[in-house]
């Protein structure tokens, strides 16, 4: 007769895939809020994105409040 039992074990160590995924989120989010000057939307809108500065204007108040150089 066989019986199965569920036990909980603690496994230490951080998966590399999680570190890579979170590092990408970190870099992308930081760039969007802190440093974008039209770069991201220029992929779609070309040079006009550097004039419109849509993300810059949208994140303007947080840039100042969080200490990033804004303009």
């Amino acid at each position: 007769m066989s019986e199965s039992r569920q036990v909980t074990v603690s496994k230490k160590g951080v998966p590399i895939i999680a570190i890579v995924a979170l590092a990408i989120v970190f870099a992308a989010g930081l760039f969007v809020v802190g440093f974008d000057q039209g770069h991201i939307f220029s992929v779609v809108y070309g040079e006009q994105a550097y004039v419109d500065l849509y993300i810059h204007e949208l994140t303007h108040d947080m840039r100042h409040a969080a200490g990033f150089p804004c303009h």
Binding site: E3, S4, R5
Partner: peptide
């Protein structure tokens, strides 16, 4: 606790 993993042990 993401470090906790549930394991099923089977034995006869």
């Amino acid at each position: 606790d993401p470090e906790k993993i549930a394991k099923t042990n089977s034995h006869s």
